[in-house]
Design a protein around this nucleic acid. Structure first.
Length: 572
DNA sequence: GTGTAGCGCGCG
DNA sequence: AAAGCGCGCGCTACAC
């Protein structure tokens, strides 16, 4: 059953569609549902399972509907997010020959499915407020039921036009399903929140910075370091937070740095360097994750960031609010399981190089990847057992290193693993020439901008050097895109498969395990202690299912490392 | 006063 | 050791 939900001035319009997006004959007209009735009506349809299958909810944006439904206690099995799927279909090389891609190209420019960042409302308060007062629903992005139905139908036509060769159509369909599932997971994780102990966080801050200072004042420990620095640098009014001010003071004391970056400062042995580095670290803790952060982002023992699915062109998620994707190691001790619960922290070991092996079908590297530690396997084959060298070479190949040690190691890597190196080189050359590259499941990199093409037509020698530099930069982007993006494909499938298994545990086993955090190649599940084993099994099965879905039965392993902890800082 | 580019640093 | 990918955010400095 395919159910379309469209915004309506008094609530929602609900219409049953066929899989292809045509109105079901018996119910040609959308049914109007008031805002207050909506949760109950949605719950009712969700419980109807013709043929045992839950409905697929089709809507413009998951963020417009699902948070409010979750707030009223309604969880759904699956959806189809028109804006996310439309964005993939509009740019995918798999659909480039379709009318959809041609029309969407125009539409995306004139009428972006996602409003530009600057026009988006501020993030919602942690307390979501009244049902459907959620700021996701904005009149300017309303589409009529007929517009949305036509959009869905057009997307299905485009998907059907993908060549079945090499499983392309299935792969793209899988990506759309995983992306839509990701949108639901993002809303569910925001709803659940990361378990966060304010008292433990406060203790960490007090240990490092001293007691909480009055508003606008430096904490005691920072102020002491500031005074020490002013003395050591003979600069009585120094503001160490100002790079310019600091740079001038350093120069006056014969410390010849070109920037105030910490790795450059470390080169100097001046007695002011040690307190300066201590100041910078503590000042960062205070500014980024101090008491103000705690006040703003943690409420009722939960940290609830907003995840932005599709926020990165490679398919990785972005986030808004609280810096969710950069929880520093320093404060991970504040992430703590509830009494009787555990945190299960799992990450896919060395995901990107393993994805590269699978993409390139490099037999020699596949053998190396059978090792639990891939870098050790690479080192044994091509670097005389030097793991550090092997790691640097491989990372350099994926990022496009040209200089330094990583750059020098490239020929050595290419001798032992020609297919893998060739694969990323090919992606780089495509990008340099202005082409686009595509992930395993069919997400394509954006085409170069009009400005890019202009730069490539430049005339003077000076302009040409600049143009070549821009082209190389784009080459590094596309080189990395295929790996990072295909890793994101894998992670999306992993997450969706894990969600499915956890839902089964919840409904069949009445286990209250929840996904609470996701970061590129890492997930966190908050689970009752007696459900930990079942959750670990789910995590591992989901990982191997994801590998199979992307690549089929190939001899490359994607191992996950799992830690069961009370506190996140013990995870690795 | 407001908007924003650049720096610096956190994460993968 | 500190360049080669992708991000978000706080701060300063500077343009308007």
């Amino acid at each position: 059953m395919y159910l379309l939900l469209a915004a309506h001035p008094h609530g929602a319009a609900l219409q049953e569609l066929t899989q292809a997006g045509q109105p079901v004959h018996a119910t040609p007209e959308p049914r109007l549902v008031s805002t207050s009735d909506l949760p109950a009506v949605v719950r009712h349809f969700e419980s109807l399972r013709p043929g045992g299958q839950p409905p697929r909810w089709i809507w413009h944006r998951t963020q417009d509907w699902y948070p409010a439904l979750l707030a009223s206690g309604v969880e759904l099995e699956r959806c189809y997010d028109l804006s996310l799927c439309g964005n993939i279909l509009a740019f995918s090389r798999f659909t480039e020959h379709t009318d959809y891609a041609r029309n969407a190209e125009r539409m995306v420019v004139e009428d972006p499915l996602q409003p530009p960042r600057s026009l988006q409302p501020p993030p919602p308060p942690a307390d979501q407020g009244a049902l459907f007062d959620a700021p996701g629903i904005r009149p300017e992005t309303h589409r009529s039921p007929e517009e949305l139905r036509a959009e869905y139908a057009a997307q299905q036509v485009a998907l059907a036009a993908v060549s079945p060769e090499d499983n392309r159509r299935n792969r793209l369909q899988l990506l759309l399903a995983a992306e839509s599932a990701g949108a639901m997971i993002a809303a569910e994780m925001q709803h659940a929140g990361v378990p966060w102990r304010e008292d433990l966080h406060g203790q960490i801050l007090a240990d490092h910075l001293g007691p909480r200072p009055p508003l606008g004042q430096r904490p005691a420990r920072l102020e002491a370091l500031n005074q020490e620095l002013r003395g050591l640098l003979n600069a009585p009014t120094l503001n160490p937070d100002s790079p310019q001010d600091l740079m001038r003071a350093l120069h006056r004391n014969g410390i010849e740095v070109k920037s105030t970056r910490k790795w450059e400062l470390r080169e100097s042995t001046h007695p002011a360097i040690e307190p300066l580095l201590a100041y910078k670290q503590l000042s960062r803790l205070h500014a980024a994750n101090g008491w103000a952060w705690l006040d703003a982002w943690v409420d009722g023992g939960r940290f609830r960031p907003e995840y932005v699915v599709g926020g990165v062109v490679s398919g990785r998620w972005a986030s808004r609010g609280g810096g969710a994707l950069q929880i520093p190691r320093q404060i991970r001790g504040a992430v703590h399981a509830d009494p009787g619960y555990k945190l299960i922290v799992a990450d896919a070991s060395q995901l990107e190089p393993r994805v590269l092996v699978a993409l390139a079908r490099d037999p020699s590297m596949a053998e190396a990847a059978r090792n639990q530690d891939l870098y050790a396997g690479i080192a044994a084959k091509g670097f005389g057992g030097d793991r550090a060298k092997a790691k640097m070479a491989l990372l350099g190949a994926m990022y496009g290193a040209t200089s330094g040690e990583a750059g020098r190691l490239m020929p050595q890597l290419a001798r032992t693993f020609p297919r893998a190196v060739d694969f990323v080189e090919q992606a780089a050359r495509t990008g340099e020439a202005g082409g686009t590259v595509t992930t395993r499941l069919g997400r394509s990199s954006p085409p170069p901008s009009e400005r890019w093409f202009q730069s490539q037509r430049s005339a003077s020698a000076e302009e040409q050097r600049r143009a070549e530099s821009i082209a190389r930069s784009r080459g590094r982007f596309t080189r990395n895109f295929v790996v990072q993006g295909s890793a994101a494909d894998w992670a999306a499938c992993w997450l969706a498969e894990l969600r499915r298994r956890l839902r089964t545990l919840r409904t069949d086993g009445h286990v209250s395990a929840e996904l609470v955090f996701f970061l590129h190649d890492e997930v966190m599940v908050h689970a009752p202690a007696d459900a930990v084993d079942a959750c670990i099994t789910a995590i591992e099965e989901a990982a191997s299912a994801a590998k199979e879905l992307l690549f089929g039965p190939i001899p490359v392993e994607f191992p996950v490392s799992v830690a069961v902890v009370d506190s996140y800082d013990n995870a690795k």
